[in-house]
């Protein structure tokens, strides 16, 4: 019995995942097509990248509520740079990343130096960004031909190269955002698993004081975790802008919670019980696959959040419930 529980904790999640993969394919053969695989992946990239970002802050026992709004403001800033300012798309990318770094840095300083609890600091930042993104365009969505404050029309447009980042495909099959996601996931997995930086980040999450007493500059690492979270969020924002092709003011909604849910589901993957890159990726793919498969089998769209909730609760039970500690 104990062995079974240990096995269930370690592999249960992957078995359920493999089972649903096979099940969906048997019931709906087109589920197994390559184009569907990539459409699942394309569907989860933005949330997946954000989940990787929030993983860093979860690892140091922190939290970043501002990831979704950071992505959203990068959509607005990219659009503003290209459409209103009529500048090269490279500026849009650079400015977005710079903005992501800055937001992360401010978050990190607020939490580490000003000692504001992480949830509060990043909640404040979330609202601040949500408001800030509306200011340049006076609350309106940014698109070619929009009316500017001086009465003229915006003449710039989204560069084709920029749109390619979101809508292009390699070999006419693999979407570019998926490639970006996979590369990021591999790099982050490697950093967390095989470098001293990853080791120290995990150690900080385990016992910050002990790490400090081991001579590590903990503050630097914690700030770095938030900077990485902000930067990765801005990359998600750039891809989102390229997918939408317009500075849409509503684009950030729902991203935060989906990403956090994926990262939490990741705790259950291989029973590691810790935030981890592989888990976040698997978590987000699992949700994407489940929703895709169930939609193919005509599950109504309004049950999606319910399904996500079931998966999250089940994963949390796997993670925490099945491994009761002794009294």
């Amino acid at each position: 019995m104990e062995k079974f529980v240990a096995f269930a904790i370690k592999y249960g999640f992957l078995i359920v995942m493999a089972g649903s993969f096979i099940g969906f394919g048997l019931m709906e053969p087109s589920f197994w097509s390559w184009s569907n695989m990539f459409s699942i992946l394309l569907g989860i990239t933005i949330v997946g990248i954000l989940a990787l970002g929030v993983t860093f802050t979860l690892i140091v026992d922190g939290f970043d509520l501002s990831i979704g709004s950071t992505a959203a403001i990068c959509v607005m800033i990219s659009s503003y740079v290209m459409v209103v300012l009529n500048m090269n798309y490279m500026y849009a990318i650079l400015l977005s990343i710079l903005l992501g770094v800055t937001i992360g840095l401010v978050n990190g300083l607020l939490i580490v130096k000003a000692k504001i609890p992480d949830l509060l600091a990043t909640l404040g930042m979330m609202f601040l960004i949500q408001g800030l993104q509306l200011i340049p365009s006076a609350g309106m969505s940014i698109g070619t031909g929009m009316m500017l404050a001086d009465g003229s029309e915006a003449e710039g447009e989204f560069a084709q190269q920029f749109l390619f980042l979101g809508q292009g495909r390699l070999f006419n099959l693999i979407p570019i955002p998926v490639i970006v996601f996979v590369i990021l996931a591999i790099v982050i997995y490697f950093v967390l698993q095989y470098t001293k930086w990853g080791r120290i980040l995990y150690a900080i999450g385990g016992n910050e004081k002990a790490v400090k007493l081991a001579g590590v500059n903990v503050e630097k690492y914690k700030i770095a975790a938030y900077v990485l979270s902000g930067t990765i969020s801005s990359i998600a924002g750039i891809l989102l802008a390229a997918r939408i092709g317009r500075g849409d003011v509503t684009s950030g909604g729902g991203l935060l919670l989906d990403a956090v849910a994926a990262a939490l589901i990741g705790y259950a993957v291989l029973g590691v019980k810790k935030p981890n890159a592989l888990g976040s990726v698997v978590g987000v793919i699992f949700i994407g696959m489940l929703l895709n498969g169930l939609t193919m089998l005509s599950l109504p769209y309004y049950t999606q959040d319910f399904i996500k909730g079931i998966v999250l609760v089940a994963a949390l039970i796997f993670t925490f419930g099945l491994s009761k500690s002794e009294i």
Binding site: A203, N207, K209, V211, G215
Partner: peptide, 20 residues
């Protein structure tokens, strides 16, 4: 309070200060 990193292996606990 001051030394142990719970949820980490013996190895990771031993080498912590000397990862460089």
């Amino acid at each position: 309070v001051n030394a142990i990193i719970p949820e980490e292996s013996i190895k990771n606990n031993i080498t912590l200060p000397f990862l460089d």
